[in-house]
């Protein structure tokens, strides 16, 4: 593929990645979607999940994000992640901690609306845990 997608991964602390890649699969809150170059402009929130990046040389990279949102515009894809961890660095213990936190959130949630959101997060995390 000749043309490449300009991809930027930004966390609140720093710019984590800025590269030209072939394809990125984003865990959108309403389903995963893959982005190639010249994708139609989209703005989507993300659920906790894994971003799959296929680099220009075909190498794959997997990064865990804990929510955030993704924006596709003619210039490329920008992912604003609340927290991003490379899958190689993510171990079961860290994920278990996340799950515990999420469980606490569910228990602490005051309104039904919030509880539902926290529950969704928890479900995503648990799903992730089983797939690891």
């Amino acid at each position: 593929m000749a043309e490449l997608l300009k991809f930027e991964l930004v966390s609140p602390e720093k710019l984590l990645m800025s590269a030209e890649v072939e394809q990125v699969v984003v865990p959108g809150s309403e389903g995963d979607f893959g982005v190639f170059v010249n994708h139609a402009p989209v703005l989507s929130t993300m659920r906790p999940g894994i971003i799959d990046i296929t680099e220009a040389d075909g190498k794959k990279q997997r990064i865990f994000v804990r929510g955030g949102f993704a924006e596709v515009n003619p210039q490329g894809l920008t992912v604003l992640a609340e927290q991003a961890i490379n899958m190689d660095d993510l171990d079961a213990a860290a994920l278990a901690q996340e799950v515990a936190n999420a469980e606490e959130d569910v228990a602490d949630a005051k309104s039904d609306d919030k509880r539902q959101k926290a529950q969704e997060t928890l479900d995503h995390l648990k799903q992730l845990q089983t797939s690891l």
């Binding site: 402009p41 989209v42 703005l43 929130t45 949102f69 003619p74 210039q75 609340e82």
Partner: peptide, 24 residues
Amino acid sequence: LDLNGAIYEYEPEEDEILADLLPR
């Protein structure tokens, strides 16, 4: 941004995104 005539697709709806985005 110049979107080349394309319109942003919002997923979920704008107001939901905004509700998510503003606290953040």
